[in-house]
């Protein structure tokens, strides 16, 4: 008897889900024709939380970089958009793309400082850095100082002439960003970087000895996640049309909620953040009137999940049913054959 091996990426479930994804995508692109204004607004919010969750999960689940300072890049993206559009005369959509790119550039020197700290200390260090950005922007009087600024009406009109046109455009941009964030994670994990990152997560010293360049890999993951997070930040404040340091660099809105989403859904998978985002918005529909109790409930659920099911709800599902919607992992199939 001899054994042969096949390395397989997709499963039947993942092949079905790929076709399903295309169908869902077409329905979502057409949303401005079937959804109302309130629904569109809600979906924009869902998309940007989904993108933020994917980025945080990429950092923590694959890069081994637990950040509690991602609000730094949300705020940076938002402020860069406002600065470019209001003072640079750049078209807001162009400014949005530039905001993502410039945020990634700023993340490079930031990484050099943050990477001086390891593990848990890295996490707190990223929070200090986010505070530095918040306090610094509060000092810039041209951007409204501590009270912030609104996007001037003329610039708002330059996005699209009608209000509906603006809302539709923002919606499509949000959808595009959410898809781009998922695609980034998906293709990153399928690349040779993906293997390197999984190796780092599983054992840093071991992968170091195998020649995986830990520092460079982490650096690139960090900068890419920051750029995408900056892009999301620009979108968030393009929708809100108003920015202030406290709103832009809010640890609760842009990091705590995102962490809860990822922890509840499942860290280090593409499916987990999707599931987490869905659960988060369902809970919010029911419980948002409860004020602080809603956050207490959400935090309580996240703590309980972390303690009792550290792989999140998606982890519970895969442990039971072995389904993978997005084929990023390589599966080893052992075929038993009769020897000739």
């Amino acid at each position: 008897m001899s054994l042969s091996y096949t390395v397989q990426r997709s499963t039947r479930a993942s092949q079905t889900s790929m076709s399903l994804t295309v169908v869902i995508l077409i329905i979502l692109i057409a949303a401005p024709w079937w959804a109302g204004r309130a629904e569109l607004r809600l979906m924009v919010e869902i998309f940007y939380y989904l993108a933020l969750a994917q980025m945080w999960s990429l950092l923590a689940g694959y890069g081994g970089l637990v950040s509690v300072g991602q609000q730094a890049f949300v705020g940076l993206g938002g402020y860069i958009l406002f600065a470019l559009a209001a003072f640079g005369g750049v078209h807001p959509i162009m400014a949005l793309v530039l905001a993502g790119a410039i945020t990634a550039l700023i993340a490079m020197p930031t990484a050099l400082v943050a990477f001086r700290l390891q593990g848990a200390y890295f996490a707190i260090g990223t929070w200090v850095i986010a505070e530095v950005f918040r306090l610094s922007f509060a000092q810039i009087s041209a951007l409204g100082g501590g009270s912030g600024m609104s996007l001037p009406a003329s610039i708002v009109k330059s996005i699209a002439s009608s209000r509906a046109g603006r809302e539709h455009l923002v919606y499509w941009v949000a959808l595009a960003i959410a898809v781009a964030a998922m695609a980034l994670v998906f293709f990153l994990l399928r690349s040779r970087w993906g293997l390197a990152m999984t190796a780092i997560r599983d054992s840093e010293p071991a992968s170091e000895s195998l020649g995986v360049e830990t520092y460079r890999t982490k650096f690139i993951v960090y900068v890419m996640a920051a750029g995408m997070t900056g892009l999301v930040g620009a979108l968030i404040f393009l929708q809100k049309l108003r920015i202030s340091p406290d709103a832009a660099f809010s640890v609760q809105d842009w990091t705590a909620l995102v962490i809860f989403i990822v922890v509840i859904g499942g860290i280090g998978t593409i499916e987990g953040p999707i599931l987490g985002t869905i659960i988060f918005f369902i809970l919010r529909e029911f419980a948002s009137d409860w004020g602080s109790w809603y956050l207490i409930l959400l935090g309580g659920i996240a703590v309980a999940v972390m303690l009792f099911a550290p792989k999140g709800l998606w982890g519970l599902i895969t442990a039971r049913y072995d389904v993978h919607l997005f084929p990023v992992g390589r599966r080893l199939i052992v075929n038993e054959e009769k020897s000739k």
């Binding site: 923590a60 637990v66 509690v68 593990g119 848990a120 996490a123 705590a256 962490i259 809860f260 922890v263 860290i267 935090g299 309580g300 996240a302 703590v303 972390m306 303690l307 550290p310």
Partner: peptide
């Protein structure tokens, strides 16, 4: 390092 960090962050 994730569980202690995230549990205390939740707290």
């Amino acid at each position: 390092i994730l569980p202690p960090l995230l549990v205390t962050f939740g707290f």
